[in-house]
Design a protein around this nucleic acid. Sequence first.
DNA 1: TGTACATCAGTGAACGCGCGTTCACTGATGTAC
DNA 2: TGTACATCAGTGAACGCGCGTTCACTGATGTAC
Lengths: 200, 200
Amino acid sequence: MAKSIPTPKAQHHHGDLRNALVQAGLDILDTEGMDALTLRKAAARAGVSHAAPAHHFGDKEGLLVAIATHGFEVFTATMLNERYKTGDGPQQQLEGICRGYLRFSNERPALFRLIFSLPYKEHLDPALQTASVNAYMVLAEVCALFEPSPHGPGVNELRVWSAVHGYASLALTGRGNTRPGGNPVKLEWLIPELTPLQPK
Amino acid sequence: MAKSIPTPKAQHHHGDLRNALVQAGLDILDTEGMDALTLRKAAARAGVSHAAPAHHFGDKEGLLVAIATHGFEVFTATMLNERYKTGDGPQQQLEGICRGYLRFSNERPALFRLIFSLPYKEHLDPALQTASVNAYMVLAEVCALFEPSPHGPGVNELRVWSAVHGYASLALTGRGNTRPGGNPVKLEWLIPELTPLQPK
DNA sequence: TGTACATCAGTGAACGCGCGTTCACTGATGTAC
DNA sequence: TGTACATCAGTGAACGCGCGTTCACTGATGTAC
């Protein structure tokens, strides 16, 4: 049995405040956007005094890093979730993760912007680094099902990534469909054509 | 002859304060970044009281729009400036404007982010709209030198734009060269291959 | 099992800061006659 | 050319705001014995 019955009254010890603050931050991003994301609002949404976040994150940057880390994890999960939906072939898998990419940027635009606004190389937070690399690995794994680019390793990944990231970014500012006619854009039009590996 | 000799002392009438404030804003963006761009700092850099900007721009949004408008014009000029540097052929022109695109994003990252962070469709400021469309027209004109995409009008533009915009954005966050080896990325690797029109 | 004590987590008040905006004002400019 | 007056552009003081951060504190938890 639990040591004490949790009452609706405020308890001094939250128990899982760190995660609660990250969740609060994600909620604020999704509902009010980046500018509204402050330590004070996150604390308020978590039901805690506004000085509490300092204990867990030190400063605001710390909270942003924690949120971005979680954001990359959600991002990775979204891509993986779409990966096999169309089929098992290399092309279907590639389309799947790109569809996941666009779904994430479309459904959680503020979070998408946040995770790609933190500088990559200088930032040494290990958890963030890991989460970021894991997201990239989803793409790299699928690209390994294709013939490597004649221009060198990683070039296929870069081409696909640039195309889908660019389209996602442009779409977020309302420039996704500047064509006169305006039929919906199909994902296949954007993804560079790669040659699947021949099974021996 | 001028009516009065301009003295180094502060004059009540600036004469060209609107442009001076836009220039001050551009300077701040280039040297200190987006977060440092405030009405008060722009006024200070223009050598004017901090309440002066309100007369010309109403509020902060107004200054941002004016800066972004100028930003689009510089962006357009940068692309045009590179357009013929490699050669007259369609492929060379296309590479040229893409090189200009990347040069602009690389040299003026904060300005680049600003012009693509203002929402496109909802924003009705006519000058900004015009400047933005003019930038797009540079790309559209060069794409007109190629066979139109079988998928419909504007699709070639969208593919090229997505690729180069995505690469530019990723490079700004330090993700432009994630490949193990790390040879410099060549522009031709990124641009989708289009078929030049056959001269009849 | 009970007690003493160290450690940890969250509180609440206070701090200074820079910000955008407002407003009555004043100095400069332009125009009518 | 000169005068009166309206209009315009920039001033400087003041306002309230929300923010991140600090700090002594208190309540809760965990541990040693």
